[in-house]
Design a binder for these strands. Structure first.
Length: 310
DNA sequence: TAGGCCATCTGGTCCT
DNA sequence: AGGACCAGATGGCCTA
């Protein structure tokens, strides 16, 4: 839920609880002090609020061009200075807003490359970070060992520490039934590869439908390079983005894919494998599982899959 | 209605 | 001095 960027000041931010916060109050105060209260006194309080009050309090001020009765120069209520302080605060707020927008943009980018992305049902910030962490860890393990876990284990690992709703979401993305792999309550840790040997089996496989309504497809082996590609290209994935349905960016059999902003015409292969790579060929070479990253295509699946063809 | 999530404001701290 | 970063506080929105 991003709000307006900084260059579009939220003029009618009715939701802001700070419409009447002190910055605003100061502006009001400076113009219209409370009745029966000297403007100077009001502004002196402003000074105190800034932590810069350093006056001898008993000094009754007979203000005359900043001169006290003792003749010493008293700190003159400095409108320009107060205005500067207020302006700094307002600018700092704007910068902070901008900074948070940048942070949120980065989070949105992250949401698009973790294995569960939906424009309408966004992962929360914390869940996005957790999922990303699990995703990185899983991919690292895959690279390190050169082996692929089964889908169940893969999803289990991805969902480690995630909330049940998010787990269901991820499971739905991967066309798993979320309940079927929540076998370790309380976020108890489990190992990616040991579980690989334990979770092949009918307890998860194909006995029900995933949340998406599509039939689950058996999985658990990797005899073919695309065996675990579920109904690829997905019949309904072409509209998944528009409809707000979950559009899994991850192709498990291909280990992972990066789902960045897709150009029109490329939506029909959400289940396709997209890798980031160094090599680049012409778009004429593109197959359905070529890389699409930042508007470029990188057909290097074979290269990246090599470690798994053993 | 409670709880989760979020945006925003705010003041403090650190750094340049 | 001013900007970046951070965490606390607060209130709005949404959902179960």
């Amino acid at each position: 839920m991003l709000t307006l960027p900084f260059d579009k000041p939220p003029s009618n931010q009715t939701s802001s609880p700070f419409k009447t916060s002190w910055a605003t109050n100061q502006l009001v105060k400076s113009v219209k002090p409370e009745p029966g209260r000297a403007l100077e006194e009001s502004e002196r309080e402003d000074e105190e609020r800034d932590g810069e009050e350093e006056e001898e309090e008993e000094e009754v001020q007979e203000q005359s061009g900043g001169l006290t009765t003792r003749g010493s120069y008293k700190k003159k209520p400095n409108h320009a200075r107060l205005d500067r302080v207020r302006l700094r605060r307002i600018e700092a707020n704007a910068r902070e807003r901008n900074r948070m927008h940048g942070l949120n943009n980065a989070l949105d980018s992250l949401r698009k490359v973790v294995p569960c992305y939906s424009k309408t049902q966004k992962l929360s910030k914390i869940e996005t970070l957790r999922l990303a962490k699990n995703y990185i860890w899983t991919l690292s393990e895959i690279l390190r060992t050169g082996k692929r876990p089964d889908l169940l284990t893969f999803v289990q690992t991805l969902c480690k520490g995630l909330s049940q709703p998010t787990t269901n979401l991820v499971a739905s993305c991967l066309q798993l039934n979320g309940r079927s792999f929540m076998s370790e309550p309380g976020g108890e840790s489990f190992s990616l590869y040991p579980a690989y040997h334990h979770h092949h089996g009918p307890e998860v496989v194909g006995s029900s439908t995933a949340d998406s309504g599509r039939p689950l497809r058996p999985f658990g082996s990797f005899s073919g390079p695309y065996e675990a590609l579920y109904d690829s290209p997905s019949p309904d994935c072409s509209s998944s983005l528009d409809s707000g349905a979950l559009s899994p960016p991850l192709n498990f059999n291909g280990i992972f894919s990066l789902k960045h902003e897709e150009p029109v015409g490329y939506r029909s292969c959400h289940y396709g494998l997209r890798y980031c790579s160094i090599s680049q060929r012409s778009s004429a070479d593109l197959g359905p599982y070529d890389i699409h990253l930042r508007g470029q295509f990188y057909p290097v699946q074979d290269k990246l899959n090599k470690p798994f063809h053993n």
